[in-house]
Design a protein around this nucleic acid. Structure first.
Lengths: 237, 237
DNA sequence: CCATACTCTTGGTATATACCAGATGGCGAG
DNA sequence: CTCGCCATCTGGTATATACCAAGAGTATGG
């Protein structure tokens, strides 16, 4: 069982990966070079690389090459401290791009919020980076009545939640979170610069105020090995 | 980008998967048969199957074949309702096997609980099934002082948490959860009857009582497409 | 009747090879 | 100097083929 040749390759590569200086700029040699070095085929070598990718040790950027993966980001989706805050707190460098803002109906969001399927919602799509690596593609839908004129401001680089709290005085009292492992679809893969079908992690979150009125809903697609979800709880019966 | 042939295969297979009666007993034809039917190679066909696996639509049982995957199980790791309870509540059939019980030191557990690395702990390893499909392999470590004689009983098929609460009067007041996506290692893969490297989801949980004394720690390895983690929160500042 | 051995089927691993498509960086024209 | 083209890198997709190893069921021997 453990005698497959590609597992020997993963072992040897894993060994090399422990040495932080083994690869310049965290970049692995090309598949062709590695295959020759290990005296095997690209097909087999890719099997080994795929294994290490699954273990979260390396990742690839579409048609650019393989890279050693940095430590996972700790992320607590139950807090609404902004992305920038917790990335910075972990000594990493955050960056956010707004890809799109518009008004649209999105039935899954409406359903999660208990609204009619065709309710128009403010929609903001963003891409987030950690140390200049794109790790997260997210879409957020906000109920217009809760934050009128939200899209006019155009300052979403910082925390949207802070915006909702500060400018609109909203209290994010109630949250429903779901997360599951799913490979990245075409859009998310493109936005994150990875191959379609790469392993991903999806977080969906519906938020309500203290009167249980819906505030917003968002879907996050993460590179699977970029994060570790952390939740700390007290006194939950 | 979307013109790869294997993506056509996934589309056609996805189509067929929507029909619940397309495959007898939820089992797909063999790779060789499918490859011939779609006039392609097993290699390419496997690429398509791998894509659908990543999407959570199908899964494989080691050297037995491919099967269409049932809906994900909803799982709230913040509650300690037993596995049997919530599986049953969702109209599925649970089963649990105890693989091993012993006393051992496990440094990661000790660290998560704030104990010395070599502290001996009660250790219980179990395998859990939903509708006779093995979906979860878990190890649980319990601080002996909290539950003296726990291992002597040997009735772990039901809820271990209920046991801790009922027989030992423990209150599970404080929890630290971490989960992340990671392919299955050799042991978990073997226990779940899947190929090593199959996509998985890991849940780690450390539990404390109301005086913040450590109670136990567990590691769960799930088949990645068997579950959807759900958390509902109120009034978290 | 049961246990064991065998056989057939399944996915798992591997070689060898070819071409495609996006990313990159250098070169040359303006 | 700048812009745009192009050669050359990268991984991504695909064909054809072979053999291995474990699961499952069947035949066979006690």
């Amino acid at each position: 069982m453990s005698d497959a040749y590609y597992l020997h390759l993963t072992d040897r590569l894993r060994e090399q990966l422990k040495d932080p200086d083994a690869f310049e700029e965290g970049r692995l040699p090309s598949e062709r070079v590695l295959a020759e070095r290990f005296d095997t085929t690209r097909v087999t070598l890719r099997q080994a690389l795929g294994q290490l990718e699954g273990e979260g040790r390396i990742h690839r950027s579409n048609r650019r090459g393989w890279f050693v993966s940095p430590p996972r980001l700790d992320y607590d989706p139950t807090r609404d401290s902004g992305f920038n805050d917790y990335v910075t707190a972990q000594g990493r460098r955050p960056r956010t791009e707004v890809l799109l803002t518009d008004v649209q109906a999105y039935p899954p969001a409406a359903q999660a919020l208990g609204l009619a399927a065709q309710t128009p919602l403010y929609h903001i799509r963003r891409r987030r980076f950690v140390d200049e690596r794109a790790v997260l593609s997210e879409s957020m839908w906000v109920v217009p009545e809760r934050a009128p004129g939200l899209l006019e401001e155009g300052q979403f680089g910082v925390s949207l939640w802070a915006e909702l709290r500060g400018r609109y005085g909203l209290t994010l009292a109630h949250r429903e979170l779901r997360f599951y492992s799913e490979s990245l679809g075409e859009q998310a893969a493109r936005e994150l610069g990875v191959a379609m079908g790469s392993p991903g992690l999806t977080v969906r979150r519906a938020t309500f105020d203290e009167q249980h009125r819906p505030i917003g809903y968002d879907e996050e697609r993460w590179l699977h090995n970029a994060l570790c979800i952390t939740v700390t709880l007290k006194n939950k019966p």
